[in-house]
Write a protein that binds this DNA or RNA. Structure first.
Lengths: 347, 347
DNA sequence: TTGTAGGCGTTATCAG
DNA sequence: CTGATAACGCCTACAA
């Protein structure tokens, strides 16, 4: 209700506002004695500086906007958790927005963030060209932008993602090493990330002299409800399995959702994992270990992605000079593989 | 870089700042002609009002702070997602903080939020008395506080949670209906939420003339690493199962983590679900359906919890008058049960 | 209908 | 070492 202000403190203490302000900010031009008195009194009165006034004066709000497709999935919630940790280490706050993979919602999110006076944006864009003009304008004028995860995006800035080609390659090779050659790859939205994982998959096949079977490249529709999605995927797998001669013996899932869902579907279809079908896939969820069978996963280094994103953004925020001069880098981090029962072909 | 301000617009337009401000805010005291000119020019120059200045003037920041134990788990990320939706409908932003169940971290989070100038707080406290004095002071003076989920907390405000007693009762009865009487209950932190779910469990047993077996009430330690946690739980279950005469035939998990993890552990122990042990538990994850066997769950109504929290908080923010006069309510929402294979005892 | 002036709470500059 | 004063960008009485 009745907030204590500098002015009030000054009045009661019989000092000027500026003296009080300086004392509280530990200015060297204030005597220790005065500082002590002021600080003690401020504490007594439970004085809290008004952040808005401070930020107005300073021209910064010490908050960072984050836009990602959706908060719900494990990869993103890990990203958020880590962004949080690093941001707060630097005394920055996070304001999170989701785009739901829609350019329109993304536009709103960007505007809402600007409207909130954030100092910078960290974004995984809705798609490869979504809001590109808007982001470009913002980045070049008011507010620096950093891109993560979906880094195939034509904006000249720091980009932080994983080496999707290599990850796809490694996962596929792991299956081949186990003796599986008929490998289905499950793909989500046909965006850069997916394309590169797919390219890695194809390269691994090629290196092992296995021909790419187009029927094994399965795209799944995310826009439907969970049920429709499940039924769609189930149908596709059932169809592939029906002909003994061409039935696959392994599955590689390129997204969290695809990878975890497919296990349930295989159970429903009473397909043995890994005996009939080995399964590996991208997934950052802790649940991988609790699935039955335990799921082999490719894990993205969310902590590193987050720490680099924050670090680079803060660099840009601090460095007010012309951003067009900077030599921006693209970081492609390595993912790691956890092998569990779903690819255990030893027996 | 160079933000356009009202002052600059006014200068170029040869008008006063106030005219421009009023025109942009559609004040009735400005002629349509002037409004048109001003608005057009503002758009041309891509004028964006400085939110910090505005908020300083208006005394509000239009942002809400949220504190919860951890962002990572499905229940909380659903809560966040929903809070988000409702908040943005009211033009409020969300600033999220996690307490990691630590009072100390929670204290920091609260202070960081105040320091950011938020208009209100929505919190699920670290424990039943954490930061109680601080929150009380804040709530009664500067900034209204709403409590959700862990609502056994001695603060006079709106509280939004689920009917944990009833939920525990229903889950247990479901198992009993299926013919299972030797039911283990897995409990996490011994806080109000857990206690009530346990009380519901005990009441269901009592009503069905089943004696409570203290050995079936299993507490798990969350503070350890995932591995230790798994091993701990595994050991406890293995121990209970070893004596044929007293071995349980059902498990009720009182938290998301416990419920999903236990399936993996049972698979490891090669215990058949539901044949040997039926499993049901609290869980808000979409993955329940992909688990093997598909997991029967008690689902908390995250959308309702979120919408009520936002609604009540905004009410308090708008209503600046003395909060000590308000007749605060406690909302206890119903959870819902999804029965899947892990409790399917029909065969 | 438009303009002037004051203030929101803070920090920064400069003078005393 | 301390104090007066201006400024950050916006809004809003009140005066013209």
């Amino acid at each position: 209700m009745n907030k204590v202000t500098l002015k009030e403190l000054a009045k009661v203490l019989n000092m000027s506002v500026s003296t009080v302000s300086k004392a509280l900010n530990d200015s060297h031009e204030i005597s220790d004695a005065t500082k002590k008195i002021v600080k003690k009194f401020a504490q007594e009165r439970n004085y809290q500086p008004n952040p808005l006034a401070k930020y107005l004066k300073l021209g910064r709000s010490n908050s960072i906007g984050v836009i990602l497709p959706s908060i719900g999935n494990p990869f993103h919630s890990q990203i958020i958790e880590n962004l949080h940790n690093y941001a707060s280490q630097h005394n920055f706050n996070l304001i999170i927005m989701q785009s739901k993979d829609s350019e329109e919602i993304e536009t709103k999110a960007i505007k809402a963030l600007l409207n909130q006076g954030i100092d910078g944006i960290i974004i995984s864009p809705a798609h490869e060209t979504s809001n590109i003009e808007l982001l470009k304008k913002i980045h070049e004028s008011t507010c620096p932008v950093i891109i993560f995860d979906r880094i195939n995006y034509d904006l000249d800035t720091y980009k932080i993602g994983v080496n999707n080609f290599q990850s796809g390659f490694n996962a596929t090779e792991e299956l081949i090493k186990g003796g599986r050659k008929k490998i289905v790859i499950l793909c989500g939205k046909n965006i850069g990330v997916t394309k590169q994982r797919l390219a890695g998959y194809e390269e691994a096949l090629k290196r092992n002299s296995i021909e790419v079977n187009q029927n094994y490249i399965v795209y799944c529709n995310y826009n439907n409800s969970f049920e429709e999605f499940d039924n769609d995927l189930k149908e596709k797998i059932a169809y592939l399995m029906q002909d003994r001669a061409t039935a696959p013996n392994a599955i590689f899932g390129t997204t969290d959702t695809l990878t975890t869902r497919v296990l349930g579907i295989l159970a429903d279809l009473e397909i043995q994992v890994p005996a009939e079908l080995a399964v590996i896939g991208f997934a950052n969820t802790e649940i991988a270990n609790s699935l039955n069978p335990a799921l082999s996963t490719i894990r993205q280094p969310t902590a590193e992605i987050a720490s680099l994103s924050i670090e680079m953004l803060i660099k840009l925020i601090a460095n007010k000079k012309n951003r067009s001069q900077i030599d921006f880098q693209e970081f492609k981090l390595d993912s790691s593989i956890q092998l569990r029962k779903s690819t255990d072909l030893s027996s």
